[in-house]
Design a protein around this nucleic acid. Structure first.
Lengths: 242, 242
DNA sequence: CGTAGGCTTGAATATGGTCAATGGTTGTGG
DNA sequence: CCACAACCATTGACCATATTCAAGCCTACG
């Protein structure tokens, strides 16, 4: 019932760099199965002794931290092709939680094989580190956005990113992509209140810059949105897939 | 004139995990020299084709992004033992700039040797990835701070982190550590205006929670500061040194 | 048909930003 | 040795963006 890595639908969407035959063979052995989640379910909890490693095969979710007083910060959105669990594997415990926002399927890998990977498949180890660097770059951008931009720019930035990323993963239909998050998720990611997020989204909709409703996000003119938000349009660069 | 890795003063400060004799030998060959910077000088510029790899030997600096309109976001502070340049090496260009806030010395490594490292020294490659995970964890915390906390909590968090990190690197004298940044640097790191940062620092000083003046930061009671800022005291965990 | 979850909207409030001016320290040149 | 400039820290007054509180609305679902 699980998908063979050979047939992985993500391999050829253009977002990810190609595998060698050899690497593909290793991945097939590295993969131990699949996990499915329903919307609202939790895959990993902050503080928990490290689980396994996962790659999102389909669906969408969030990586988030819960503060002492219950507030929540979404660190990043999880979309097809994203790799989860390195932090916990290397540092001993989860530093954030992972939850599903839609129905989700993930490939599971054995954490214990990680060391084998480093010893015997330097190309894959390099890919892993590369993925880490891409994530680090993204987090840096997020910090700049939270630190310097106002609500309109933050939302513009986030919607642009999600749109570009989902389109690159091959999920676009016309100028729109499926987006299963709640407004609260975006608010928690951008450090805004739900109310203000809602009003700002309404403004973007009125001005025709971006329309996110009924689970779909459409951006008629990416360049215009980018410009009106004072951000530079940045397309996702190819990166490795694990 | 340059320091031999064998005599590296950072190796034994307790913050970093130990090297094997073998690894030490590799590091000595990996290291190509040292670089010195004066306060205000720039080591690397955003967008520049990837330079080499560096580890901070002494002094302090910032990693920052400059937005389209000139605003600046400090992504992280650079302190002794921090490793710089992976992102650029893996992604082809610098995604942020690196500047010195005090006199600084860095060890330089040859970027071209990175692949050798992955192929022949899996332990070191693993360490590199580990460092990436630690950084990623830190950035996640920073995002949570920028997104959810008010000015007092942000400053408390930042001062706690800097204090703990510098103390772990062996730079504490009593309850104080040297801190060569300007208030503007903290402001740019925390997404606050200089004025508000200054007023908030004054409040922390008045209430005796933290005193940062004339280049030194002292925190008489870490637990009290942590509590009054609503954050949990988190000590830096041991991590690899490159 | 009633409840729950999420979206929408308005009004009052507060946190933090902007503007503006002053003071302290350091370094340089006359 | 003093004058001046440059840079950073400090403080007060005013203002704006975003939060909080409080309803009402819509849709899916039992």
């Amino acid at each position: 019932m699980t998908i063979d890595c050979r047939d992985c639908p993500l391999r050829n969407c253009g977002l990810f760099v190609a595998f060698s035959e050899d690497e593909l063979e290793f991945m097939r052995r590295f993969k131990t199965g699949e996990v499915s989640l329903m919307p609202g379910e939790t895959l990993l909890m902050e503080g928990q002794g490290s689980g396994e490693l996962y790659t999102v095969l389909s669906g969408a979710g969030t990586r988030y931290k819960t503060l002492e007083d219950g507030r929540r910060q979404v660190i990043n959105f999880l979309l097809p092709g994203d790799f989860i669990g390195m932090q916990a594997s290397l540092m001993g415990e989860m530093k954030h939680s992972v939850g599903a926002s839609s129905e989700m399927t993930l490939c599971q890998f054995k954490r214990a094989d990680l060391w084998t990977l480093f010893r015997s498949y330097p190309e894959r180890a390099y890919a892993l580190t590369w993925i880490g660097a891409v994530e680090e770059h993204f987090l840096g951008e997020a910090i700049a956005t939270l630190g310097q931009r106002d609500a309109g720019q933050r939302l513009g930035w986030a919607l642009m990113r999600l749109h570009a990323r989902l389109a690159a993963a091959g999920l676009a239909r016309g100028d729109s992509v499926p987006l299963s998050f709640r407004q609260q998720d975006l608010a928690d990611a951008l450090g805004l209140s739900l109310v203000h997020t809602n009003k700002t989204l309404a403004r973007l909709r009125r001005t025709g810059l971006a329309d996110w409703s009924r689970g779909r996000l459409s951006i008629p003119d990416r360049a215009r949105l980018a410009q009106s938000c004072g951000i530079e349009e940045e397309l996702p660069e190819p990166r490795p897939l694990i």
